[in-house]
Amino acid sequence: MPGRFFLTRPIGEIALFLNVEDSLGPQPARKNIQPGQEVVVLTGDGLKTMRWGIIPVGRVNARGRPVMETIVNARSETVFDKSAFEGVGRAIIPVDGWYEWTGEKRRKTACRIAAKDGAPLLFAAITDTWEAPGGLRVDQVAAVTCEPNADVKPIHHRMGVLLEARDVQRWLHGSEDEAQSLTRPWPEGRLMIEEADDVDWSGA
């Protein structure tokens, strides 16, 4: 949807793939990136880290009621016209892949999903800044989701919006209509899905 991410390749490779400067330097390999943790993102200002999950302080829904749950993933069908997302920015979350869980409750199987060609996957995302008590400002990000393609559908009813490298600037800087035109399922047959039985789910 995604449930968790993984990014183990050097950030320098990510920067090269995105044709941007490596402004972060060496980062640890991470096999289990969870909501609430820091993730690498690309914004119009370059690579940086943000907290995965938007704390919607002050945001309200269409009925004017406060949004209470932290926004980890945002639906593409409503992200451009829902009052809860008013004023958010756009970013890219570059990763090696993500995890989903499938099966019956208490017997779910973790699946690792990555590109068949080994290239990084680029998730469309939205950003916000939370002004925490004491004046602390926390940059936050949430992945944008859409209907699943044929590869992912047997595992989950949603998938993250994945972008081609050529569409990164259109997502970051294009109009809302241009960005929304990119929120479609990834072409089928380009993802590798395998059981993830080698991950320590307690750590990053």
Rank of each mutant, 00 (worst) to 15 (best):
F6H: 13
R170F: 01
P10A: 05
P120F: 11
E13C: 03
F123D: 07
G174E: 10
G46K: 13
I126E: 02
R59I: 11
C146S: 01
D22G: 10
G203K: 14
V67F: 12
E21P: 08
R166N: 07
W171G: 01
E86N: 08
M1E: 08
D139R: 06
S76D: 04
V141S: 01
D22N: 15
W52K: 07
P10L: 04
G97I: 13
G44Q: 12
E69Y: 02
A143K: 06
Q34D: 09
A110C: 11
A62V: 09
R90F: 15
G160E: 01
V40H: 05
G189E: 10
S175V: 00
W186L: 02
Q27L: 15
F85D: 07
D197L: 03
G89C: 04
S202V: 08
K48P: 00
D200C: 00
V88T: 13
V144E: 02
C146L: 02
T129S: 00
Q27P: 03
V199K: 11
R90I: 03
Q37D: 01
A29L: 05
G46Y: 10
G58N: 07
E147A: 02
I92Y: 14
Q169S: 12
P28Y: 11
Q169H: 11
P94W: 01
E69W: 00
S83L: 14
F17Q: 10
E77N: 01
R170G: 01
G53W: 00
T70K: 12
